[in-house]
Computed example of a mutant assay.
Amino acid sequence: MGALLDQKHEKLFSLLDTNGDGVIAENDFELMAGRVLTAADEESTEKGEKYADEMRNYWQALRDTADADGDGRISRDEFRQALRQVSGTFDTLVGPLYQAGFHLADRDDDGLVGREDFVAVLAAIGVPAPEAGVAFDRLTGQSGQLTKDQLMTAASQYYCNEDPADTASHLLFGAL
């Protein structure tokens, strides 16, 4: 893996380690889901339930893939090893969570997410709001609206792509 991909994976680990204890565990996913649902004001809705379900599914898949020692916690090293496998399974392992997150932020169900909703969701997962705003602006360009395809492409490139030359995906979760 190259240096940029390592930086992106380190950033992702730090966001998923929601409580900051140096490992990723189920309670990190529960905490993050709660923050996102509160920020989106979707705690008791069908969209909220779908997002919470996908957070649980992502945790289970990540644990099954990464928890090499079976202790129910994922270390930085275990996380790095697991992400090397993600490129082939992104659509089934990670994609559903991003799709659910998109639908959560698409408050009026028009297939577009505005800047305010995007920033609110990313801030809830730990990305500083100004950095989330920059990511949104770079991802959407002149349109000012994010599509699901744009988000899915950016997320896939964030996990799997080393070269940021023609994409803003490396900013998806804030500055590296």
Rank of each mutant, 00 (worst) to 15 (best):
E26A: 14
Q99Y: 03
N19S: 11
D109E: 15
G114E: 09
Y51H: 01
D109I: 01
L83M: 15
E116C: 04
A100N: 03
A105R: 00
A82Y: 00
A120H: 05
G20K: 14
D91H: 05
L104K: 01
I74K: 03
D110K: 04
A61G: 15
Q60R: 12
G101S: 12
D106I: 08
F102E: 03
R76W: 10
Q81A: 15
D64V: 07
A66H: 12
A105Y: 01
V121S: 05
E30K: 15
A135Y: 00
E46D: 15
E49G: 14
L139I: 06
T65H: 09
F79H: 12
V121F: 08
G111W: 07
D64Q: 11
D137V: 01
V36Q: 01
P128T: 05
T140L: 04
A120Q: 06
A61D: 05
G70H: 12
F29A: 07
A135W: 00
E43Y: 05
D64R: 13
T65M: 06
A135K: 00
L122T: 01
E131W: 07
I74R: 05
T140P: 02
T45A: 05
G95H: 03
Q60S: 14
L37P: 00
Y98K: 06
F29V: 09
A66E: 04
Y51I: 00
V134Y: 05
D67K: 05
Y51L: 01
G114S: 09
V127P: 01
D91A: 15
I24Q: 10
G101E: 03
L31F: 13
R80N: 13
V86T: 10
D91N: 10
Q99N: 11
Y58S: 06
R73P: 04
R35E: 09
I125V: 15
V23I: 11
P96R: 04
G133K: 07
K47M: 03
A66F: 07
D77Y: 00
Q85V: 06
Q99S: 12
A82C: 12
A66L: 06
D109V: 08
Q142T: 15
G141C: 09
T92H: 13
